[in-house]
Nucleic acid binder design. Structure first.
Lengths: 215, 215
DNA sequence: TTGACTAGTCACCGTATGGAGACTTATAAG
DNA sequence: CTTATAAGTCTCCATACGGTGACTAGTCAA
């Protein structure tokens, strides 16, 4: 029981920062607060104010230390688009399908990110605005890279490229976040890999059809 | 200033019930509580306990009085599927596209429903479970009706029907809820009708392609 | 050994919450 | 006119929140 930690400011700061993530993952973003975080860190809440200046700055520090969102490299992998010669014509559709899959897998492996997505639906403040700005930029980055490779040559009607990305991103976010607590959505099983495979398959088929539709 | 309402139990109950909706619409579901609702109703909060037994029952009464979700008739309109002779073959794709559009329009015209959708992302209790049960049933109802008309004749691969419905429903919910407070998502403008038209158009094209993809 | 510095503790404040009991007052029956 | 019932008001309570100031106690240099 002699949990007498040595007095160490930096270690205590890190304990607090880590506690933020732990509380979010355990109880969601909505119930994160100065009392709960301090208790989770095993530290007095007064230190939050002394070391960080306030709870908002602690959250800020947590955000700065954590990557909540994929980078373009995460999504495109080592096989950058130009590694695949742009021959087939439906390459972009295949890529979009793969991107959707990786997007969803990223979310399913990052519970804190799912909490943030859920939280952003009901709350809007400096922190959520900053986080959603990062995501929007990453998404636009990804789209720009895809357009640079496929924009002139692919048969997909580029008028639909943006809306389709939005549709897939929105559906992925919603279903992944919902799958945290709910089993089914519109008959789809969000808690089984099989349900997600069905979704991936349907998306792939739709995208291939979209390409061939190009007038 | 003599706002001396006559003493009327039923009227007061209704005032409270209506205040629930008003508070939700104004401040969101997360900040709904006994104090705020009573103040909005211009009534003492003790009456909530006397007339309803508790705040949960007041919410229950509000839920029973309000239709948060479309019915199959709302979505299919008077033109039931069998009113259109099943000639073209891509009728189902056209219907799905129309359904998506009506789904989104319903949401955009029902702010309280959007608040509930957002709220369900972070909270899960008896009330949210009851509400999402209703929606799931309505969605399955809709799908069953569509399958009954098109299941045997349409060229759409029925393996993909369920997942596609889930994808469209999820994207509609997410984008509509997000559009309450945020302007853009993946470059799509959620606050202008033009942005939504782009989305509808892209969805229509995708669905048509899906039909023609049937192997 | 002493004294300064600072990491960590503790008690407290103001506010808002959900909730209950005691009270006042309007109304309608006898 | 009297009186019981019920509508509506008021005060209070326990709890939890974010936040602050005073205090205790290790640590390290002189």
């Amino acid at each position: 029981m002699s949990s007498i930690r040595a007095r160490d400011r930096e270690e205590t700061k890190q304990l607090l920062i880590d506690a933020v993530g732990a509380v979010i993952e355990a109880d969601g973003f909505g119930s994160v607060g100065v009392n709960k975080v301090a208790k989770a860190a095993g530290v007095d809440k007064a230190l939050i104010y002394r070391y960080f200046g306030g709870f908002a700055q602690l959250l800020q520090a947590y955000g700065d230390q954590t990557d909540f969102w994929w980078t373009v490299e995460d999504i495109l992998g080592d096989d950058l688009p130009d590694a695949l010669p742009n021959a087939g014509g439906d390459n972009l559709a295949a890529w979009l399908s793969l991107i959707f899959e990786r997007h969803v897998e990223f979310l399913r492996n990052h519970p804190v990110t799912l909490e943030i997505i859920a939280w952003e639906m009901s709350e809007r403040n400096e922190l959520t605005i900053a986080l959603e700005y990062v995501r929007e930029q990453r998404s636009l980055d990804l789209m720009k890279q895809l357009l640079a490779r496929f924009g002139q040559t692919d048969r997909l009607d580029m008028v639909h490229f943006g809306p389709v990305m939005a549709l897939l991103g929105a559906a992925g976010n919603y279903l992944a976040a919902r799958g945290r607590h709910v089993q089914n959505f519109n008959g789809l099983d969000l808690k089984s890999d099989r349900g997600w495979q069905q979704l991936f398959h349907a998306v792939e088929t739709m995208l291939l059809g979209l390409v061939q539709e190009k007038s």
